[in-house]
Design a protein around this nucleic acid. Sequence first.
DNA 1: CAAAGCCCGGCACATATGTTCTGTTCGGAA
DNA 2: TTCCGAACAGAACATATGTGCCGGGCTTTG
Lengths: 217, 217
Amino acid sequence: MAGDLSAKQHLSEKQQDILRFLEEFISEHDYPPSIRDIQTGCDISSTSVVDYNLKRLEEKGYIRRDREVSRAIELLDGQGERRRRSTVQVPVLGKIAAGIPLPVHPDQMAPEEVLDLTEDTVPNRPGLYALRVQGMSMIDALINDGDTVILEPRNSADPGEVVAAWIKDREETTLKKYYPEGARVRLQPMNASMDPIYEDADNVEVQGRLVATLRSF
Amino acid sequence: MAGDLSAKQHLSEKQQDILRFLEEFISEHDYPPSIRDIQTGCDISSTSVVDYNLKRLEEKGYIRRDREVSRAIELLDGQGERRRRSTVQVPVLGKIAAGIPLPVHPDQMAPEEVLDLTEDTVPNRPGLYALRVQGMSMIDALINDGDTVILEPRNSADPGEVVAAWIKDREETTLKKYYPEGARVRLQPMNASMDPIYEDADNVEVQGRLVATLRSF
DNA sequence: CAAAGCCCGGCACATATGTTCTGTTCGGAA
DNA sequence: TTCCGAACAGAACATATGTGCCGGGCTTTG
């Protein structure tokens, strides 16, 4: 028990109780409880006891408080890191299938739905949007029917980035790794066992960069 | 303008300003601002003006307030639905590669990292854990090197579910659709163009159910 | 033009809420 | 025992914060 460096510092039962209550309250209300909310919620006899234990929790890196500010409690992870990362709202602009181009002006479209994602899922960049994949035309990009792809609007790409490319003469959008090679472009499937295709640079139009893919079951 | 059921109701510039400030403040502090915070943050002359516009925002379904409670503002989506879904903490328990079994007792392992995910990414079920995929042995499940898989601990599965199955005599974990067929089990790759494999039921051990996969670029 | 309604300013008020002070209780150390 | 610090009780205090009221400018409507 002693000298256990990596272990969480000891929390009294009351402190664990408070921590649980904080989580529950916040997830229910979207704002933190007041000291008296905690008092009644955890059956504690006095506000000073709550305050006392909150101070201990703050010392141990489980919460952060702003003095004099009501309900100013942030949940931390026990090592002083913020636990509740901010979320990013990503509009779902529609479906994508082989032969259907991506939306050209994502900003102007009315989203049919908005995804709430954390930065553990997608990096927070401006203009991100999502599309539902319909059909299996992108199986060579390891993307299946029903998956969701997150894209960042782009007109060009650096070599090696995964892009949504509109191939003009085929009238088709494809997701591939992008390698410009002089007058032509090599488009490499994500599945390393598959062969690349080559197109004239004129024939390829970068429409966006692939940022993430999601699949739920 | 009248009778437009689906459209968002008109928001004054000041109201949009307040809404933006709310988002910004909450994502920065993890707790909502007070009326006076909004006042100074949006350069509004009086608390009553803030209050007035908050009332309008509440009527229009963009926020919800609890009366008499300080900082009790929840963000809604304009149709009365909660916008800030609660997040789920999913521990990353390690890597997975061909030939490496899944952790048997996920609860007891110390996570090397914790993912913060919304319910738009994974359903909130107890015991979820994540693994980083190493190597391309799961390419037939449309899962690539570097992907993250989210699993739910399970000892059995319903037909058609995607499971992590330990195949004893091969000493290998595989992700496939699970179809029990009498004394044997059909394991169907997720890529519909690939053929299923068949194993004796005795030789297959369900270790978990695949809940989601994530890929970032 | 008057009446009505929307939006705003300024201010005082009530209360919601964090803080602090004084004690008390309980174990373990000296 | 005595001493001391951690944890707890209870209450008073100070301020942070939501609310109500009154009035004014502005537009709309008749």
